[in-house]
Write a protein that binds this DNA or RNA. Structure first.
Lengths: 203, 203
DNA sequence: GTCTATAGGCAGATAGAC
DNA sequence: GTCTATCTGCCTATAGAC
């Protein structure tokens, strides 16, 4: 049968590249405008193809969104793994983590999951579940950094590490959210500096 | 001429009440679903009137949104004035401020301006300007509380009060944003507790 | 003030040719 | 894989009767 597994490797690569291009454009649109504020027509016009063509790669908007989120979560996990690879002290890992957000903001984008969290009440269930999973992953990673930092004395905070992890995620997402209307990254940076400083051990 | 000033006071009141009801429903929809995810049809169905009737009170969605924001900002300012009226110590004022957010969250809503900040790139200019003005107002109020607290020794923080004010706004907005997918207000409360504790003078 | 009726556009989606 | 053509439905908005 003429399934995808039987088509040539070259074509398969082309198909994947098209799909990736679609996700690239969709990602930019969702992160800057929101899931409910972009259409297949937007992507089609940007790429110079028709809407029908997009439906070949992603049957519907829900599937596109889910694929988008899966890729985003994978990349984010890779970025965290890359930070870990450096074997940096805990405070430096936190700074590197915050820098991931700053980079997104400099591209005038909101965190994908922060945007989707705002639209949560209107999204398909699979997308919602992936959003929660994303935050859970972030929380776990931060918890381990925080606990390590507290153990070796490079970080200082009270209560469960999970609470502080949640506070960090919330603060970074919120700083992004409020900063974007001002278009001023400095606004974000001062908040991050204050946040990281509050976790430093008292002299 | 048959302007609004010439109609009876009774009718004028009825008109205002209808307009208020429309704003009530719109507010609920925007805060839970977003400006781009509700329609005149949603409001009309909820109130049991037709879409055309809504257009009598608010010519278009942009005007409705602007009126909504104006009312919200006015009420928020009133709430802040009410907090000031109590002449509480600075830390208590901050707690009361955070409680405004908590109340919104308990009603399963996002801060109106936090939601609109997410959708910023897609909104009419007048709405965007009102969103920025709202955050500016909040920042000013927090600044004065923070400075007063630092002066009388009830609060402790480093750097300009404006930076800490921005951090507080961002943290509260972000905590709301991330908490909503979990539907667990406790998540929000732990962040707020940590935030307020970090501003307490060191023992 | 609220209604019916309707315009005009864009959304997401599908069928079928190439 | 991408196209043209088309469907259906919902959107914002308006005209005009009551």
């Amino acid at each position: 049968m003429a399934t995808r597994t039987s088509i040539g490797a070259k074509r398969e690569r082309a198909r994947r590249n098209t799909a990736e291009s679609i996700l690239d454009v969709a990602e930019q649109l969702v992160q800057s405008r929101g899931f409910n504020a972009f259409s297949y027509a937007d992507i089609a016009n940007t790429l110079g193809v028709t809407k029908a063509s997009l439906h070949y790669h992603f049957p519907g908007k829900a599937e596109l969104g889910h694929a988008l989120l899966a890729r985003y979560a994978r990349r984010f996990a890779d970025a965290l793994a890359e930070i870990d690879r450096g074997r940096l002290p805990a405070p430096d890992r936190l700074a590197a983590y915050a820098e991931l957000y700053a980079t997104t903001l400099r591209r005038r984008r909101m965190c994908l999951c922060g945007m989707l969290a705002a639209e949560f009440a209107t999204l398909p269930k699979p997308i919602n579940e992936a959003v929660v999973a994303f935050f859970d992953d972030n929380e776990r990673w931060l918890m381990s950094v925080l606990e390590q930092g507290r153990a070796d004395g490079t970080l200082e905070f009270e209560g469960p590490a999970g609470d502080t992890a949640r506070m960090i995620i919330g603060s970074l997402e919120g700083a992004m959210l409020v900063t974007r209307p001002y278009g001023d990254v400095g606004r974000f940076n001062t908040t991050v500096a204050a946040l990281l400083a509050s976790l430093e051990p008292q002299a």
